[in-house]
Simulated scan of single mutants.
Amino acid sequence: MLDIGAHTSIAGGVHNAVEEQLEYDGTCGQIFTHSPQVWQDPNVGDEEAERFREISVEHDVGPWVVHSSYLVNLCTPKDDLREKSIDSMQKELDAAAKLSIPYVNVHLGAHTGAGVEGGLDNAASALEVLDVPDGVTVLVESDAGGGTKLGSTFEELAGVLERCSLNLDVCLDTAHMFAAGYDLSTPAGVDETFAEFDEVVGLEHLECVHLNDSKHDCGTNKDEHAHVGEGKIGDEGMRAFVNHDAVEGVPFVLETPTEDGKSYAWNVERVRELYEE
């Protein structure tokens, strides 16, 4: 059973994200609880939270994912940024619980001079501080890499999971993996990537996929998403990915662009076509 949806807006109330998802014919989805480019607390009222929960159940839309702020940096050696990141993550977790959303997704961030091991230590210890509500899981997202960003390799993802006593899981982003050097453009490449992920991290930790094609070549560390099948991963790679046994039952969330007359609805339908093929 294919579970496919898109990142939708909470403008006008978080319940509107469900209505938007229905317009795309999506069955799962992702939201920001506020603008991801500023330090801001989630502002979800009791009534709109109840409406979000009710509409999601009524139309069988879910699971949902809360994507944390882009400013969060769990790997940072800077005390002030670390505290802001922990505070922001805690509030996202509490908002997710209020909305009955099972996942909060986060990028590890950049170690900015602390080194890979130091950055992973910082991330794990920051996550340890969190009071994770029952029914909510933190997902560590794979990154495109570049500079001192961490999470672009499966070893780095595994390093955080191994260091942290929380029950962490993983969200893989296809465009990010491709940019980081995991070639998903062929069936053989997809097979090899999943085999490596299973060996290093474990497929039991894969709980969500951000399904995006890439505008740039494999291994460039350039993070720019393309429509499904129309980027450098292409139809062949995307078809192999969505039909792979490793992602059976895993929800796919689109973060594709809105350009060239193609919206999320176009990409949802394209994924279904590739899956049915």
Rank of each mutant, 00 (worst) to 15 (best):
E192F: 12
G261I: 09
E92Q: 14
I86S: 07
E128G: 11
V132K: 05
L172I: 05
T256A: 01
N167V: 12
D217P: 06
H15P: 10
E207R: 15
E23T: 15
E236C: 14
G249L: 05
N221V: 08
N122F: 09
S100Q: 15
G13N: 06
H244T: 04
P102C: 05
L22A: 10
G189L: 11
D213R: 08
N16H: 15
G231A: 09
K98G: 08
P257Y: 00
R82E: 10
E269Q: 13
Q37W: 13
A6V: 10
E230K: 13
P133V: 03
C218I: 13
E277R: 15
V132W: 06
A6G: 11
E236N: 14
G13V: 07
I101E: 00
P257D: 03
L2G: 09
V132P: 02
I86A: 05
L74T: 09
K262Q: 07
E207T: 15
L120W: 00
N167P: 13
F154M: 00
F52H: 02
N267V: 05
V129I: 13
T137P: 07
V132D: 00
E83F: 11
G115D: 06
H59Y: 12
A195M: 11
V271T: 02
L127N: 07
D80S: 13
D213T: 08
R270C: 06
K78M: 13
S100M: 14
H176C: 07
T193I: 04
R51Y: 10
D223K: 01
G151K: 00
E273F: 10
V65N: 04
L108M: 07
E162Q: 07
H205A: 00
A265S: 13
T148K: 14
E269S: 13
R163N: 05
V250I: 05
C164E: 06
S263T: 14
Y103I: 08
S125F: 12
I4F: 04
V65C: 07
P77Q: 03
L130C: 06
D79R: 15
G109Y: 02
G146T: 09
W64F: 09
F252P: 00
P42W: 02
G234F: 10
D260H: 12
D41I: 08
R53E: 11
V268L: 06
S88W: 08
P63Q: 02
D191S: 15
H210E: 05
V140Y: 03
F154I: 01
P133R: 05
T186M: 13
A96P: 03
L130V: 04
T8G: 11
A17D: 07
I233T: 12
S100G: 12
G249D: 06
E230Y: 14
G118L: 03
L150M: 12
V170F: 01
L203F: 02
L99N: 03
E204M: 02
F194R: 02
L108P: 02
P187A: 12
V106T: 08
T186R: 12
S152G: 13
V242T: 05
V61H: 00
D173R: 02
E277D: 15
G135E: 04
L166T: 13
E255W: 03
A97F: 05
H210M: 04
V38L: 08
E248D: 15
E156Y: 05
H227S: 05
A240C: 11
R163V: 03
I55K: 15
G45M: 05
M177Y: 08
F32L: 00
L172D: 01
A265N: 09
G159S: 03
G118H: 07
G189K: 12
S69N: 10
E276P: 08
S185D: 09
